[in-house]
Structures are given as C-alpha cells and as structure tokens.
Design a protein around this nucleic acid. Sequence first.
DNA 1: TCTGGGGTCCTAGGACCC
DNA 2: TCTGGGGTCCTAGGACCC
Length: 442
Amino acid sequence: MIALLDCNNFYVSCERLFNRKLIGKPVVVLSNNDGCVISRSNEAKKLGILMGEPFFKIKNRVKSLGIYVYSSNYSFYGDMSKRVMRTIKNYCDHVEVYSIDEAFINLEKIKECEYFCYNLKKRILKFTGIPVSIGISQTKTLSKIANKFAKDSEKNDIKINYKGVYKINCDENLDSILKLIDIRDIWGIGKRLSIYFKELGFNSAFDLKKMNQNFARQKKGILVQKTILELKGMKCYEISDNNNDKRKSICVSRSFGQKLTKYEDIREALVLYVQKASEKLRRYNLYCGIVNVFLKTSNYEKKYYKNSVSYVFKEPTSDSRQIWMESDKLLKSIYLRGYEFNKVGVILTDLKEKKQIQSFLFGNNDLNNKKSFEENSKLMSVMDEINRKFGEGKIRLSSDSVGRFKKAQKSKESERKWFMKSDFSSPCYTTKWCDIPFVNIN
DNA sequence: TCTGGGGTCCTAGGACCC
DNA sequence: TCTGGGGTCCTAGGACCC
C-alpha cells in the first residue's frame, strides 16, 4: 500500500502557528505581489473564496466578510515543511517528499495501515502543530483520491474509522468511490484533458477507468494511459527515494509590481535574479551548461510580446559573473522598446555535478558539428586516460544512440568505425542519458 | 544522378503538478 | 490599476545525415 500525506491548507496552517487568534477564522494567504489567493482556510472556502482567484477582484468582498489576509512567507513555510518531513521520516523508512506539503509513504511492511497512519497524523500535529490528512491505496493516483476523502471526512461527517485517514481498497469500495470523483480531480488530468474527455462523454474517474487504454495512449499520450492503469490498481509510478532527484533546471523570475518599459529597469531586476540563481547553483554544488533569459508582457496586455533566448557555455560554469555577462547580452537581444513588460526571468539548465568528469570533458564539444577523425582521436585518448585512472570507464550516450552502439559492437572493426564518427555526448540533450561501460578498443 | 526511408538531434510548445 | 513562482515530462516536427 501507498499513503499520500498532505498538510491541510498548509500556508494558512503555518500562519496559524504563530497567530492563535486565526484558528477557526476565515484566512487566506496571497502570492507574490499579493497577486492571487494561494491558500485558504476551510472557513474561507465555505465563504466562496476560490483557489487562484486574483486578489483585486475580491478585495471588497474579503473586507466585508472579515477574512484575514496574509502575504506569503516562503522561507518560513519551507522550514515548517522540513520539520513535518523529518517527523514522517522518523516513523517511516521509505518516504518520497513530493512537494512542500505532500509526501508519499511506502506502507508495504505495515500491517494495520489505517491505524498506523492515524497515529502518524497525531504525532505530526503534536510535534509540529500542522494538521494533515492521509489517503491510502494501491497506487499513487488512487492514494491521491483517497486523500481527498480523508480531507472531506475532517470537514463533514462521513462515516470513517479514523478521522483524517481514508483507505481505498481495489477489491472492495473502488468503483463506487471513483463514480463520485470528477474526471478533472484526478491527478494528471488537468483543465485541457478534462474538457477533451468530457466532450467525449467521460465525466467521472470511473468513466476514465473504463476507457480503452490504447485509444487514450494514441490520442493523448503515455501519461494518460498510465493514469488509467493506476486507476485500475496497477502501479505505474514507484515511490522514489529522493536520492536521484538531481535538479534539472533552476529558475528565478518575478512579476513586477508595476509594468516596466525602460531597459535599465528590467536589467536591474535581472541582475538580482541571476545572482539568486547562481547562489542556488552553488548551494546544490552544480554547474550549468545553458543559460536562458525570458521576457514577457502580461498575458492580459493588448500589445502582447514574449521571447526567450539561450546561450550554451563552452564549459559548464557556476561563476555568477560569467552567467551575468551572457544573460546581459541575451536580455539586450530580446528587449523591445514600446512594450509594457510584466516579467523577466532566468533559467539555468543542463546542470551537472562536479564529479561528472567525463561529461565535463565531452561536454565541451561544439553543438551540431560532427567531429573530425582527429578530434575524435583526441577524445579517444582522453577516454584512455580515464580508463587508466579509474579502471573501467563509462561513455555517456543519449539513449537514442544506444541501439546503434550495440549494433556496432558486433564486430571490432565496425565498433572502431562507430567510435570515430560518433558524437559522444551533446551538452544540450540531458534528459535521457545512458552510461555504457567503456571498452578499450585498442 | 535521383529518390526515399530511416535514424538522430534538437527545439518549441503543450500539458501537467504543487 | 491590480492576475504567483518553480518545476517535470512528453510530443510533433524541422534539420540533418547516410
């Protein structure tokens, strides 16, 4: 069994820790620049405040209803999150921290799941002050749904063994529960997909479960197919250990409080974001291969413009001066006069760890240039050196190339030829690396 | 010389999550 | 007047090569 633990109205619950008078009162927490509502207490939900609602639209209503309003304090929420997660890990071996307020827990070895989770919930409340709900089922997708019922059991008087804990069992109550769930509320089915499926007459989670998975796969891709299987109780997503959760990108961006038109003003903002991004980079002990800068007007602007542009570093870097120098040039290249900009940001991608010596060496190669025989010979000698140093070395290949490599391996000569003409790695293509054991071909 | 098919690499954009 | 920020993964399609 898998449990999904979710903190109730997390940001509001955090605010309540240090302001006891907020307990039992309607409270909302706003996003940056007090743009829109990102967390609501149950009382605020009952008053009809929606998630993501722009604050300016409901300002008057909020005032007249006596709702307490707070700007967000992310570093505080981050600290509280760490405490909650630490508490969970004290009692469970196998935990995947999924987001700031959620964690998946492997319950394989636990006999009385519901009882265990109920105790966990009580302990978290005692040690951190944060109320949580726990859903239990065979797959991640189903435990998400179970969690929704657990939350409702807190609010309403649903018959339930343990308050705040709910279990869906595939052999017993599955279908009757799925019939109650709107297709939009399934994990992985967002706005677009739900509109598409509803037009075809699939309205509930039960309907989706019955859908032909090959049809789903063909029309909407592998993720929907997996969701269908998960609804049937077949596990498609394992609980990860968070060991291999190497970050793939770092992004820092903000909407401006007011619209900016002057280049200097935008540049000033960007300096700060690049600074923050490079700090993160170094904190995680990473180097970045590509820097991307984007600039846009508000989506609601009549004169709409958005653009972004990247630079590939010759060598991966974590030097904030170097990153800024390139970012500055990039911004200049996409800035246009006469537009009212709303947002600028920087994204660092193609992140590498220091210890990835090989990708450093091979990552230096120019993109899109097939290397000459001489250049590849140079690479080969570098690999030899690695081989000598570390015993068995490894070559990084994009997984697409693996088949070709295996084919070439069939004879010594074809393998040799293949080495001579291949791109061993491309710094741009990072998502699907395969490490192939290095074979000394001499 | 002409042509087509298959494979790879890469990008932009879409969709989703919290 | 005022509409968050930070991520991940997948896919279609273009360019290129053989």
